[in-house]
Simulated scan of single mutants.
Amino acid sequence: MVTDLPIAARTDPAHGGRWTSLRAGDREWLWTRPDPARSTVRPGDAFVDAGGLEECVPTVRGIPDHGDAWSRPWRREGDTEILHSPDFELRRRVESGPATLRARYELHADPGYRLIWAAHALLDVTPAARLAAPHATPTRLFPEAAELLAHPWPASAHHLTGPWPAPHGLRLDRLGPDDGTAVGAILTDCASVTVIDGPDTLTLSLRTDADVPVSVALWRNLRGFPAPTPYRSIGVEPMLGSVFDLAEAGPGDAATVPPGGTLRWELDITATSTRPPGPTRPLV
């Protein structure tokens, strides 16, 4: 029997607003990689990968790497967490319900401000896990995929597009086993995906009333990155935009703040399981 699970999150406003836990029933879905350097970062520092879910804005790759939110302290006002950046203010409210966790976002900036945002969720999944998305979703590959393709990468291309789940013959829906590769892809015009890992599922769905591109990024690092000591990390990342690097965004590839100066969106996360229920441990 499929059971909808209560799901709850924990965040760390003092250290970049990172989500440090996403628990459904007795399963922790977020992969974490504690690094003491994370506690002392300042804007402009090199990215410190501590796992969890990072709020990447206004870019994912590029400058600043992983955006401007992860290196700045957030503050709490009631049930809202707030980030102040030189170019924008981001407000986030995470609400846990009996079957759905909803994160509500508001970004305030000058009208016309362009950005990429991604919920950069690194998931703790087994080598048998897979990612389910609508068949034939246009999926962009980026240059690190070049060595995995059967044909040469065009020298002038920022990305190549093909249908999910195997754009240009590269099968991406399987999230393991580790094979020493690392590849990023973006499922464009895709608002919802589901991670299936044995008896458990995690569904991430994005919604906005604004006229902005909605996508899901995949970072499938099967111990192929970084050199010289690679580790495994699987990112499934609902996003506003359809490229990783804002500097490479063409027309229609980035979100744009509307005339009122406020961009709003919502991320819904649900989980199910066919396993017999176990004890639910409280978040501490």
Rank of each mutant, 00 (worst) to 15 (best):
S39P: 05
S39N: 11
S39D: 13
V41F: 08
V41D: 02
V41W: 03
V41Y: 02
R42A: 13
G44P: 06
G44L: 09
G44N: 10
F47G: 14
V48W: 13
V48M: 12
D49F: 14
D49R: 13
D49I: 08
A50W: 11
A50M: 12
G52Y: 02
E54R: 08
E54G: 08
E54P: 07
C56Q: 13
C56L: 15
C56Y: 13
V57G: 07
P58D: 03
P58A: 08
T59F: 09
G62C: 11
I63Q: 15
D65L: 15
D65R: 14
H66Q: 12
H66W: 04
D68A: 15
D68N: 13
D68L: 12
A69C: 15
A69K: 07
S71M: 05
R72Q: 10
R72T: 10
R75N: 04
R75D: 02
R76L: 11
E77I: 13
E77R: 15
G78R: 04
G78H: 07
G78F: 04
D79P: 06
D79E: 14
E81G: 00
E81M: 03
L83I: 02
H84T: 15
H84G: 12
S85V: 05
F88P: 09
F88N: 09
F88H: 14
F88M: 12
F88G: 10
L90I: 12
R91G: 10
R92Q: 00
R93E: 12
V94H: 08
V94N: 07
E95S: 14
S96H: 04
S96E: 05
G97W: 02
G97R: 01
G97M: 00
P98H: 04
A99R: 15
T100Y: 10
L101Y: 04
A103W: 12
A103V: 15
H108M: 04
H108I: 03
P111C: 10
G112I: 09
G112N: 06
G112H: 11
G112P: 07
R114A: 06
R114T: 05
R114H: 05
R114V: 05
I116K: 05
W117P: 03
W117Q: 05
W117S: 02
W117A: 03
W117H: 06
A118G: 06
A118T: 06
A118H: 01
A121Q: 00
L122T: 14
L122F: 12
L122E: 10
L123I: 09
L123S: 07
D124F: 00
V125R: 00
V125T: 04
T126L: 02
P127E: 00
A128G: 15
A128N: 13
A129P: 02
R130S: 15
R130T: 15
R130Y: 15
P134I: 04
H135M: 06
A136F: 11
A136R: 14
A136C: 12
T137S: 14
T137H: 11
T139G: 02
T139V: 01
T139W: 01
L141S: 06
L141D: 05
F142R: 03
F142N: 03
F142I: 03
F142M: 04
P143S: 05
E144I: 14
L148K: 10
L148A: 08
A150E: 09
A150G: 06
A150V: 05
A150N: 06
H151S: 12
H151Y: 08
P152G: 03
P154C: 09
A155T: 07
S156V: 08
S156F: 06
S156Q: 10
A157H: 00
